[in-house]
Design a protein around this nucleic acid. Structure first.
Lengths: 234, 234
DNA sequence: CCAAAAGTGTTTGTACTACACCCATGT
DNA sequence: ACATGGGTGTAGTACAAACACTTTTGG
């Protein structure tokens, strides 16, 4: 029989999710936070999380946690980093694997997450969070910027049909920077991943603005997505 | 007293290190592998790893593991990803946090890692590894490319003084691509982070080639390192 | 008819690519 | 004197940045 690592210590392993959403009407980037409902730190603002169970992987745990909160499946989910300061959780030695998730706010309904006192916060207006969750959010924000500069992840945060203005607002929120709308649309169109529909959205102007769709097929076909290797050294 | 998470399961947590080194004489990029000396998979090629101990963080564990193998301190070390497939280790449920490390091969001496039957392998010639260590190496390689395209990490892999040719060879190894030496030196000089010394290295040619140093001061001063946010969307 | 947002082109500068010859020196 | 690697410049092209006016239509 195998040596069973009897001299080693086991620890608790949790997952915590940094859930980003973009409200295309308010044109604001937000994160979803909950009021923690057990000790320690009961009642304080926290990321949505949970413990990894014996029969599941970390990603499965994160998916389960997200599904519990939002009812959504197939959410864009990516492992961010594992946090392991010894006394980060004062109750027990617990390491936590942070996942960041991108969801389309419009997709789901308040009822689902009312149980958790879940609330959307503008990034700049988020309350202080428990443990090292503040660091997790900071890191997730960096990662979001990073990914957005390298992959077309904006579409995960938008409804299936969106206007050019909404897309631009989203990127302006992510990078906290303003862009020239002529240059912006030139750029995003140059990727060839946007389909302009014949439909217009008339909710925001009298003239109405064209709706666009992301061309997922074309993106998948582009082998391995965008190449990043040439960006600095070539 | 706090609720102690009594209903939750604990697991073993390991760290595994993907150690990259560049041999400036052979002009080859390599990884350091060991022959595992305990069950399961005893005797097979493996990354250097170990269990996280109760009083240490993951990074401290990785540093300890690296120090045990190489005797080096202050190694460039970055958390890569946590691997958690349920039966990845057939002996016990164990998740493993992969770290990738960049070291300057010249710095240290064979004696230190002889105990572990440690050997440097060219990436393309590495043997099959245990568990999911092959995936870890693949991911580390991607991350190395990525980082190299965005930050001047090449200097972690080179001796303090290096020639332009060595620097170019390193990048050619990382990206598996050849560059024009005129364009290459123009580019790296344009960053303004290289100091050309008055010294020459005469080991590789009669004329001798200038030695360079990385200007760490200047790099640190550049707020937040290089900006990546403008690369795609601006 | 006018307010409010949508849509669209040109010019200028900068950065990347491709490419070939002379230099210094140890043997 | 010559073989070997070291070192350098230019021209063409592609991409990014700055910038302003016309269109549509609901009220």
């Amino acid at each position: 029989m195998h040596n069973k690592y009897n001299n080693e210590a086991k620890v608790f392993v949790a997952v915590d999710c940094i859930i980003f959403g973009f409200d295309p009407n308010a044109e604001e980037l937000k994160i979803l936070l909950i009021k923690r409902n057990f000790e320690p730190e009961k009642g304080n603002w926290s990321l949505m999380g949970g413990f990894m169970e014996p029969g599941e992987t970390l990603k499965e745990a994160a998916n389960r946690v997200l599904n519990t909160l939002t009812g959504l499946e197939n959410i864009f989910l990516e492992q961010l980093k594992t946090f392991s300061i010894v006394d980060r959780d004062p109750a027990e030695r617990t390491i936590s694997v942070a996942y960041f998730a991108l969801i389309n706010v419009v997709d789901f309904k308040d009822e689902l997450y009312r149980d958790f006192s879940a609330t959307w916060f503008k990034i700049s207006e988020k309350p202080k969070l428990i443990f090292d969750h503040n660091d997790m959010v900071t890191l997730a924000m960096e990662r979001l910027r990073f990914k957005a500069s390298v992959e077309p992840i904006g579409f995960e945060l938008l409804p299936a049909k969106f206007t050019m203005r909404q897309l631009q607002m989203l990127y302006e929120e992510i990078f906290e920077e303003k862009y020239d709308k002529r240059n912006f649309s030139k750029k995003v169109n140059s990727f060839g991943l946007l389909k302009r529909l014949d439909e217009k959205d008339k909710s925001s102007s009298k003239k109405g603005s064209f709706l666009y769709e992301f061309d997922m097929e074309k993106y998948k076909k582009r082998s391995n997505g965008f190449q990043i290797r040439h960006q600095i050294m070539n």
